[in-house]
Amino acid sequence: MSSIDTMSRPVPVTILTGFLGSGKTTLLNRILSEHHGQKIAVIENEFGEAGIDSELLVNSEEQIVEMNNGCICCTVRGDLVRILGELADKRERGEVRFDRVIIETTGLADPAPVAQTFFVEEEIGEYFSLDAIITVVDAMHATQQLEQHHEAQEQVGFADRILLSKTDLVSEQETEALIARLRSINARAPVRKVHFGETELDQILDIKGFNLQAILDIEPDFLNDVSHEHDEDIRSFVFRSLRPFDPDRLEDFLARILTVYSRDLLRYKGILYVKEIEQRFVFQGVHMLKASRVGKPWLINETPETVIVFIGRKLPGDLFLNGLANCLTD
């Protein structure tokens, strides 16, 4: 960053985290859709070689930066520092305008190194202020995720606010048991139920919720060089095609692979090019739960292309890719 004006109030930053498929992008869409009068710079990060989350966001007028070459809390933390620096420089030169930053991490991220950036990188800490870590928890799958993934526990432990999604898909008893478990991990963060990201913005923005001392109590090495390792069984792979899908063949194939592999399919999402549909077809899901909708139209000068990202444990990638290829039109 070059000569940055640090006299003005530091730009507040919200880290939006939560395990794969918990509903982070839904919540982010909710924030971007509100008439709050603020411009928001969004930094997206996905685990995998193809990023499509900007396609899932409803407000394309925001300043959106996508990082898809790794986990934001691992090798690309340097990229996070660089991107924040570039945003600050452009803001000072009047090239972009934003009032706050939201960082949506990959669902496999440990939020500690992301938060650490604002305390160990002096120039970043002078220009930006970490307001809060907001963690979205999937009520339907959280118990399994907390048992199997250290990152899911870290996301809850570091949260300043916990938003509990998909409670309509589980019983009240299961919800209460999960809330009790979340509070045993993090007693200081309020837990609120949300439905499709619907929550009051004053509960998640400008709350000054990040407490460094509280974090040091649970992570004494927080200000040191923190790193972590992902489950080596978890991999991502991408399907791409310029040919359209036959919708019937595609629906049949997806139904079959979800029946067999849903337990190990942690997350899948994509922008689909489907025969005789002039718009993008947005497709995403977690385990057996999948959803789809018609998205933005393909532009006249745009070449329609399917991009689907799968993230899962020991998945037979060739079977998925060959099966999808067989669903394309001739």
Rank of each mutant, 00 (worst) to 15 (best):
F320S: 10
T329Q: 10
L130C: 04
H36Y: 04
I15N: 02
D225G: 07
H195N: 06
R9M: 15
S2I: 10
L178R: 00
E62T: 13
A291C: 03
F239K: 03
Q213P: 05
A159Y: 01
D221C: 06
D221S: 09
K275N: 15
P297F: 02
V309C: 04
H141R: 13
G317F: 01
R243S: 10
A88E: 03
H228G: 02
V76S: 11
I215K: 05
L178T: 00
K269A: 01
L182C: 00
V191H: 00
A159L: 05
D221L: 03
T175C: 07
I179D: 00
F158W: 05
A142D: 00
Q63K: 14
G197P: 04
T306R: 03
D330H: 13
P304M: 02
F239A: 10
M67V: 06
S3T: 05
I4F: 13
Q116V: 04
I83P: 01
N326V: 03
L20F: 09
L254T: 07
C73I: 15
F119V: 03
I207T: 15
C71G: 08
D225K: 15
P220D: 15
Q284K: 10
E86G: 02
D318W: 03
E62S: 14
K39Y: 09
E62C: 11
A132T: 15
L289H: 08
R240I: 14
S292G: 09
G23W: 06
T167Q: 04
A112Q: 05
A214I: 12
E122V: 07
Y268L: 10
K24Q: 08
P190T: 03
R100L: 11
A142E: 00
R77L: 07
M288C: 09
K90P: 01
P247H: 07
V81W: 02
V191L: 00
E229F: 14
N29Y: 14
A132G: 06
A177L: 10
F128K: 10
H287P: 05
A41S: 09
D217Q: 15
I133R: 00
S241P: 14
G312R: 06
E61R: 15
H195P: 05
P316C: 11
V294R: 13
R243W: 08
H195I: 14
T75A: 13
E34N: 12
G51L: 02
S227G: 04
V120K: 02
T135R: 01
I31T: 08
G23C: 06
R263C: 11
T303W: 02
D168A: 09
L254P: 03
A115R: 06
Q213I: 10
A112S: 12
I300F: 08
E198W: 10
L319S: 14
S54V: 08
H287I: 06
F283M: 02
R97E: 13
F158P: 01
